[in-house]
Design a protein around this nucleic acid. Structure first.
Lengths: 339, 339
DNA sequence: TATTGGCACTCAGAATAGTTGAGTGCTAAC
DNA sequence: GTTAGCACTCAACTATTCTGAGTGCCAATA
């Protein structure tokens, strides 16, 4: 077990390092934090912390820097979440109020978060949530391709192209469309699956293959209704903290260049009971992000589906404020979308 | 008038500098380009070019580097557009073939262009083009807000929220929706304006204010149908050519962080007869881009509307190949969208 | 047993100086 | 108009020294 004071020393090291970007030495640590012991004692504590791989010295005879493990311990056990400044709270409220469509809300939100944290911010598009089906459009594009458009009553639109095994004509499409309308319009999204259970059987056997294709498409639009879009903001902040990424932001830029990568990142991280998830440095599976920390939070869309919002920055980031910023923005976003 | 050989020297300087990233000296220039004169003569030519502000010496006693003006002259008068390598042509064809929806086509295209040029690539979403109206949905969101959804027969969807001066009920919305359907469905987008000319008059005077609001919204969706989205790819390429941006890519990252800025950039540049536009360094109005060159080309969506695609990179970029790459990709994109 | 003062040691980074070589401009001759 | 020749410049590299914030360790202390 690590003694209490050593942990205090770790906390102080993390805080000072985040503040100053300089490796923290025993003596200068005492100047900022009056521990009431001598620098030699602090040095002993530091030796212990180094033993535990919580801090590390970049070179012999330099101060110490927290390791990923050190940051992890700090976040989990040593830091209080710093409440937002009132000004920040106000900024959030004013920026997210006012009616606007989804694109605009998300765009504003992610820029806000980037500005609040001075990091790269990202937000995943939400699923349709607990809304009702306003209508489903079915459009024949070519002989064997059709477009399904799902319009929810809150104005969200989801589209999907289905490729059909066999060719169809306009009449067929119109029939299906009409049947779908009477069956689904006005119902909850969540009810759709049940309502469609024996849809195919109302058609002649010869048609059922085509119907199956279309149903598969609809199922995708409705139930999965994939959240495959990510919005980014604040990329320029990366360049500002270039020194924190051991000199090169290239790998990080490469990672965020790929929507697919970001999406995987957002969805795979495991959230704690607050809906917040954090990966520090090497904890990231992606080698490109081994110098970065990723911090995300769940947010809700009309009490139903869950999507995510978060930031990417150097491992040397201000976890205390960022965690509360991300949580606050997620909360306000949930609220905004709920209405 | 600048003598012929001096221009040849300028061309050689630009080419060498793009190749080597090193300031070009009179002697090493001769090693790569057999001018058949002595280095002293080249030096005289260089002095002339410097006089004309086409090249500049970073320090006394170093080689010369082209100025923005030098690049401009090179592009306008000294360079042939380099035809694409066959491999590149093939890459384009294979990547853009295969049916897919708009998001996917544009996503692939912009990534392709980024890869082809090793620069940051951007593409502006196209307008709906010369397609027909499949249907128009009108959805009442709250008392005084309604959503207009325009579905084109090629599967493109455009939505817009209108805020109404007065409150409306479901019946009213349904009536308007039905009238719109009989009036517009199946018609060309371009015909819509005419068809709607006396739409308001078919309603009672008391309703006309609301109708006017809705019509304004529809007009926006149909005619303007704003191209306010830009897709980016290859941001990481910026970090790779960091040295070319006099050390900092920050201003460029800041510029491309802002959709609005990019959009302005894309739309404001004036294209030549090939539909290509180029701004070199300081020619950019945006101070952030004074070390960058922006190269864009028009592309068409079903023979009608025009949007743009292009790249951003250091002024020291390979104009000859990039111009042909951007043009080729724009052409293929036009072709892909036309089908 | 935990803490401390003392001390020798380390080493990155700044400061200084010297060397090199690719480049220049200029001039007088061809 | 071109060229050979020459003195000059200066960024970038190398080598060397210096400095100070930092360390680890030990014997003495409470």
């Amino acid at each position: 077990m690590i003694p209490e004071r050593s942990l205090e020393v770790l906390r102080a090291i993390v805080q000072d390092y985040i503040d100053t970007r300089e490796p923290v030495g025993s003596k200068s640590l005492l100047e900022r934090h009056p521990f009431g012991v001598s620098s030699a004692t602090i040095r002993n504590d530091m030796a212990l912390l180094e033993e535990e791989e919580l801090i590390v010295a970049p070179h012999t005879s330099s101060g110490r820097v927290p390791t990923d493990k050190g940051y992890r311990l700090f976040v989990d056990r040593l830091s209080e979440v710093k409440p937002l400044a009132n000004a920040e709270r106000l900024a959030i409220e004013s920026l997210l109020s006012g009616t606007a469509d989804l694109d605009e809300i998300l765009g504003r939100t992610v820029r806000l978060l980037a500005q609040l944290t001075n990091q790269v911010a990202m937000v995943q598009y939400p699923t349709l949530g607990g809304s009702r089906i306003h209508s489903i459009e079915l459009i024949r594009l070519t002989e064997n391709r059709a477009l399904i458009i799902l319009i929810a009553d809150n104005g969200r639109v989801q589209q999907h192209i289905v490729v059909l095994g066999a060719s169809v004509d306009d009449d067929f499409v119109a029939t299906v469309r009409a049947k779908l309308a009477t069956l689904l319009n006005g119902h909850q999204l969540s009810e759709a699956e049940g309502l469609l259970a024996d849809f195919a059987e109302s058609f002649e056997p010869a048609q059922r293959a085509r119907i199956a294709d279309i149903l598969a498409g609809i199922a995708e639009v409705i139930s999965e209704n994939r959240q495959d879009k990510v919005l980014l903001a604040g990329t320029a902040n990366l360049a500002k903290s270039e020194r924190d990424f051991s000199g090169s932001i290239l790998p990080v830029l490469e990672a965020i260049d790929e929507q697919v990568v970001l999406l995987k990142l957002l969805t795979e991280m495991e959230a704690d009971q607050n809906g917040v998830a954090l990966r520090i440095g090497r904890e990231n599976e992606l080698a490109n992000l081994s110098n970065a920390s990723v911090l995300v939070s769940d947010y809700e869309n009309q009490g139903a589906s869950v999507a995510r919002i978060g930031v990417i920055g150097p491992t040397r980031m201000d976890y205390q404020s960022h965690i509360s910023a991300v949580r606050a923005v997620a909360r306000y976003l949930t609220k905004t979308l709920g209405s």
